[in-house]
């Protein structure tokens, strides 16, 4: 189908975009790469009165390191994340994840800001920023505010962004040398939305996790930072302890049933990913299969 009629405004600056958003409120939608917005509009799931196109705002583009933060502009595209040496060095999780986001032609247009603001619970980048303990920077007429990733996502396609605010950047704490990452997802076809996925960041010392953040996606109405990870931190991970963490994870999840999977299947796959993740990060392959009974 084709999108319903709408008016179009090409923002000339962030200030101008904020003026347009203030003027039109929730009747406006921000257009960045359009790779989620346009499908939704073509399917008539959304029909905003006006699109505010921020695509030309160079000030929102680019990746820089500022102190111990990796600052990623909202208009940074998936393909930019994939190719960025800064991302490879400081937040490899994002690069690993982006390889699973759709297909090259989509990654050439889609942006990190667009993906986060869209907040599809089955998409990869929201879970990554939760796992990375990133901060979302938004600007409104009253100025700038910073929202932690875990606070930012509020539900299906729902975030802490107000209608007159613009997501301008993401700040990711630079990974120390000790940080390791894990990313894996189940999808029907490479590039499709995940059935279940896991983005994780860990610090491993002397065979134990001194930090572990597990960001699951497609298991609920928003990316979930699993509390079950707590069981594995500062502990010697045995098959029994991992089984306990897996059980806690299954309890903690409240997945939806849809045409791709039942809730039970999602719970099961999430625990499989947990085991794989722990086995990979601790370099103990026996843990992947050693539990589950």
């Amino acid at each position: 189908m084709k999108a319903a009629a709408f008016a179009y405004a090409r923002a000339t600056s962030v200030v101008n975009a904020l003026e347009l958003l203030a003027m039109h409120g929730d009747k406006a939608k921000v257009l960045s790469g359009g790779q989620s917005l346009m499908p939704a509009m073509n399917l008539r799931l959304l029909s905003p009165d006006i699109l505010v196109d921020i695509g030309g705002l160079a000030e929102l583009r680019g990746i820089t390191v500022r102190g111990d933060l990796l600052v990623i502009g909202a208009l940074t595209r998936h393909v930019d994340l994939l190719r960025s040496p800064e991302v490879a060095l400081h937040a490899r999780l994002l690069r690993d994840a982006v390889a699973h986001v759709a297909h090259p032609a989509i990654r050439n247009r889609g942006t990190i800001g667009g993906s986060l603001a869209h907040a599809d619970p089955a998409s990869e980048l929201p879970a990554c920023v939760v796992a990375l303990d990133a901060t979302i920077v938004v600007r409104g007429s009253a100025g700038e505010r910073r929202i932690t990733a875990t606070e930012f996502f509020r539900g299906i396609y729902e975030t802490a962004l107000l209608p007159d605010e613009l997501l301008v950047a993401v700040e990711v704490p630079v990974a120390g040398q000790a940080s390791t990452f894990f990313f894996q997802e189940y999808a029907r076809r490479h590039g499709d939305y995940a059935v279940v996925g896991l983005a994780a960041r860990a610090v491993v010392a002397a065979g134990r996790f001194s930090a572990l953040r597990l960001g699951f996606f497609a298991v609920g109405d928003r990316p979930l930072l699993a509390a079950a990870a707590g069981k594995l931190i500062d502990a010697t991970v045995t098959p029994a302890l991992l089984a306990e963490a897996a059980a806690a994870l299954a309890d903690e999840l409240d997945p939806q049933e849809d045409q791709q999977a039942t809730a039970a299947m999602r719970r099961h796959l999430a625990t499989v990913l947990l085991r794989r993740c722990v086995a990979a990060l601790l370099a103990r392959p026996e843990l992947e299969t050693g539990v589950g009974k």
């Binding site: 499908p39 196109d53 090259p104 050439n108 247009r109």
Partner: peptide, 26 residues
């Protein structure tokens, strides 16, 4: 018409994109 099938692929500034997901004005 929602970016899944790839039949509408074109190049913009040398990069492949889905032309059904790009507005002409963009």
């Amino acid at each position: 018409e929602h970016g899944v099938c790839g039949a509408c692929t074109v190049r913009i500034d040398g990069e492949i994109v889905r032309s059904c997901l790009v507005l002409t004005v963009q």
